[in-house]
Write a protein that binds this DNA or RNA. Sequence first.
DNA 1: ATTGACTCCTGATGGC
DNA 2: TGCCATCAGGAGTCAA
Length: 270
Amino acid sequence: MPELPEVETTLRGIEPHLLHQRIATVTVREPRLRWPVPAEVSRAGGQQCLGLARRGKYLLLKLEKGGLLIHLGMSGSLRVLEQPESPQKHDHFDIELKNGACLRFNDPRRFGAFLWVEGDMESHELLRDLGPEPLSADFTAQYLYQRSRNRRVAIKNFIMNGHVVVGVGNIYASESLFMAGIHPQRAAGRISLQRYAGLVAAIRDVLGRAIRQGGTTLRDYVNSKGAPGYFAQELLVYERAGKSCFQCGGPVRQKVIGQRSSYYCPACQK
DNA sequence: ATTGACTCCTGATGGC
DNA sequence: TGCCATCAGGAGTCAA
């Protein structure tokens, strides 16, 4: 799925088509997602879209009164259709605009979400307690260092925790830890301020480059035009188990950490 | 408070 | 071709 770069790419793709446009209707044809899609989403009908934003991996459509919250889950994608064709399998909902265009959500695995938010979106309980944006000035080595003191959780799980920092998923967690030379299983509380500085720089760098490449397409991610992302060719360790480390030439290892596949170089990462 | 395991679901892949 | 097991990019929830 979509991690931060893929959600950001989706946002940039849909924004020009939605901003200042008026929604005609919201059609839900398969409400079974992570949570059942509430009937309230139809309140978006007739409203103008005043702004779009991303918070972590959530997409926010701000309307005149209230807003829509969308999460792509593991396999979700949003497409802009200028001339809507007939819906396909796993097309869960459409946001139809007055101008005839349509924003269509497809999600085979149904881990995505589509929710109505009354009032201020940022104070919604799913967004309220999220950590800082990794590309913002709030995300610093000092912050990570402070938050991690006395924490025994593996650093990989720590940076994948949205309450610590948002947007770092399984791919970019492995990638940034490799770049920073930190073993993914190292206890978060046993990493120095200096090494956190390297990690923060690595996370910023990898996410920034991935956004520039339109995200990573491993299996089914597509952007708002249905095109894949091209960051997969820049991956250093992810899905490279047994292949040579680009830094030392030794074999890249795969190990399950916190129920997720992790990739690292045991020689380069301590 | 922190942690680790479990859960939701479909689809692709590989072994037999 | 079919059947079965395994594995996927997330993250909320629960129990200890």
